[in-house]
Design a protein around this nucleic acid. Structure first.
Lengths: 250, 250
DNA sequence: CTAGTGCACTGGTCTGACCAGTAGGCTGCA
DNA sequence: TGCAGCCTACTGGTCAGACCAGTGCACTAG
């Protein structure tokens, strides 16, 4: 007879228990963003641990983007609204240590952006269409101006499309991956000789995409957006990675 | 005259400087996975700070999945190979606090999985095809057995496809989102009455997908996989979210 | 009623201590 | 000589108590 099946006991650090409890409170909504945690000295009384332990727990929660503490703040640590900062951090780490290539990142963007366009073409409201058009207008205005303005308007366009997809996960991942890509090639873009030509081409592409979205042509919008992104980034992607990108075109 | 443009000084906590330094060492590769950090007492000497500060830094690094420390280990904290655990954690948080709906998650999986299939159909090797076929075989063998086995084989199939896509980002995101979805509906699946019928249907679908991949029919494989995932999960998705999923079908 | 000041308290850091756990060397036995 | 088992030095986890610079608020002086 095997008797009662005992489970292996996992020793759990004290600070982990604290993290779990506070995390649970935040995720269940019983601690709302904007609310304050008790002060560290108060917490150490409530959890019956020392302040070092409380602080280690708070460091973990802070690293996960759930709370923020400022020195001197008499109200204690603040519960934050969710932000993809932690997501961003771990994806950036992934990109660096796991050697995510620029090609993979761009390919991923092509996939996500195309899907966002497909969905947007079928779900967009008139307000969202206007937002996209306004972004393109800002891009046009920025061709003569600074590249930063152009880039910001470009981002705004993609954000508008992602928003119209009604899928937060697509929005967030798009956002995270885009900033990683832009970070990777920032200096190359700054040095690009034919930047103005590229900008004009991008605007043309975006107009075509917008027209497809406006017409409700999801598949067309998706294809155009893939092509647009390919054209925009292919110059920065190493020769040997380009075929994989083209796989998504046809 | 405006004089020299001074920048606002951002006060940086001591433990953050330590995190930065170690993080940089890991990401740049000068600290390889498997290597050990000096002991906390050694680190406190090297960084010229107290042990509490060192420990807070280590907690952050541990929360980011870069290192792990075991009590009593005479070799110091271990540098870990990258794992999507941190990514998983923050996405789970996102799903809980930001109310990511099951519909959005499934939709995201449909997008990623379809892209993986599209790429796999064009890039797969014969070994990868065999791996997919073996997974289906295991699924078939598990229909009569436990659902866990079936599920594991199903996961193996999707992993094989994701692997054949040659895109680590797709692999990892697929993996993370899948486990969140499965976690969300675990109890519903356990209670499903028509589970066996669903399993048989899934196998049939997977066979069709595999045939398309084998034939190099990327678009077909993508469409079939979307349909397959829709059929598999639609029963768990609230009525009002289903139209958004169907948007991806046609 | 407002501008300015002081204070109580906060988070960040330090020191120093104790404990349970681990690995590796050492001892003693076969 | 080979190995089993013990010892010890050191580790990470936790605690207690202290100091400092910074913050917000109540109070005060104008």
């Amino acid at each position: 007879m095997s008797g009662p099946r005992f489970e292996p006991v996992r020793t759990v650090r004290a600070y982990e228990r604290i993290v779990e409890q506070i995390e649970e409170a935040v995720e269940s909504g019983s601690l709302q963003p904007g609310e304050r945690l008790p002060s560290e000295r108060e917490l150490m009384a409530q959890f019956a641990v020392s302040r070092s332990t409380v602080r280690e727990a708070l460091r973990v929660l802070q690293a996960r983007g759930l709370v923020r503490s400022r020195p001197g703040d008499p109200h204690g640590a603040e519960v934050l609204p969710f932000s993809p900062a932690a997501l961003h951090k771990s994806m950036t780490t992934l990109a660096r240590v796991d050697e995510l290539s620029l090609g993979e990142l761009v390919q991923f963007r092509m996939v996500l952006d195309a899907s966002a366009n497909l969905l947007a073409a079928r779900l967009r409201t008139d307000e969202e269409l206007a937002e996209m058009a306004a972004a393109i207008e800002r891009m046009r205005a920025a061709v003569a101006g600074s590249y930063d303005e152009f880039s910001a308007a470009d981002v705004a366009f993609h954000d508008a499309v992602a928003g119209a997809s009604r899928n937060k996960l697509i929005q967030i991942c798009t956002d995270v991956v885009r900033s990683i890509v832009l970070d990777l090639i920032a200096e190359k873009i700054a040095a690009a000789a034919d930047r103005e030509a590229l900008m004009r081409q991008t605007i043309r592409h975006h107009e075509e995409v917008l027209a497809a979205i406006r017409a409700g042509e999801g598949l067309l919008a998706a294809r155009l957006s893939r092509q647009s992104m390919y054209d925009y980034y292919v110059g920065y992607v190493p020769e040997e990675e380009r075929p994989a990108l083209r796989t998504l075109l046809e």
